Simulated assay, not measured.
Amino acid sequence: MRSKHIAIVGISARSDRPSHGVAAYLQAHGYHIIPVNPREAGTLILGEHCFASLTDASKHYSIDIIDCFRKSDDIPPVVDEAIAIGAGCVWMQSGIVHAAAADKARQAGIEVYMDLCLKIEHMIRC
């Protein structure tokens, strides 16, 4: 992957959660992870400051990929923020699908992946 700054939306501070494991894997492989979770905002997750929203995070970092660990019904507002901040890619983890939000993102020029694990895809391709 050429992208280096990956926002992990819905990341958990708990190390036993998939979002935490994927973020740790990406970080171990040289990617800068940007935790986004309003309940954890202001804390450190994997040594990185956690932001309440993508909008807040985008004030500090240019975000290449938004990796979503949210329910499918929660994806439309994430896509709206992705469009507003000019993100390049929205990635919906395994089991997460929202066709209308994906179409909206694509119409805005954002690359979209659904129902795929970023960690697994990285392991396969890199």
Rank of each mutant, 00 (worst) to 15 (best):
A108L: 10
G42Y: 06
G86L: 06
S62F: 01
L44E: 15
C68T: 05
H32N: 15
V36A: 15
I45F: 07
Y113P: 02
A102I: 05
I33H: 06
M123Y: 02
K59T: 05
R106D: 11
F51R: 07
I110M: 13
Y113I: 03
Y31E: 06
E121N: 12
S3P: 01
A102S: 11
S15Q: 06
D64I: 06
E121A: 08
G88H: 02
R17D: 10
H20V: 04
V36K: 09
G109H: 15
A52R: 12
F69R: 08
S12E: 05
H98T: 03
I34W: 00
V90R: 12
A99E: 11
L116C: 13
Y113N: 09
Y61K: 07
R70Q: 02
M92D: 07
V90L: 07
I34Y: 01
A24Y: 00
D73M: 06
E48P: 14
K119E: 15
L118Y: 01
A7I: 08
E111T: 10
A101Q: 03
R70D: 02
M114Y: 12
I8V: 15
M92S: 06
A7N: 01
T43M: 05
A99I: 01
C117R: 07
P77I: 01
E111C: 14
P38V: 02
A24E: 15
V9I: 09
A7Y: 03
C126K: 12
P76Y: 02
A102E: 04
A57P: 06
K4C: 03
I45M: 10
S94M: 07
V9C: 08
I34V: 08
V9T: 00
I34N: 08
A41C: 08
G109L: 11
G109D: 09
I85E: 07
M1P: 15
K71V: 01
Q107K: 14
I45S: 06
A23L: 09
Y31D: 05
D67Q: 10
V112H: 00
L116N: 07
A52G: 14
A87R: 09
Y31T: 12
I66W: 00
A82N: 00
I63K: 09
P38D: 09
K119F: 01
R125N: 12
S12W: 01
C50L: 08
V22T: 13
V78S: 11
Y113M: 12
A102P: 06
H60T: 12
S94T: 07
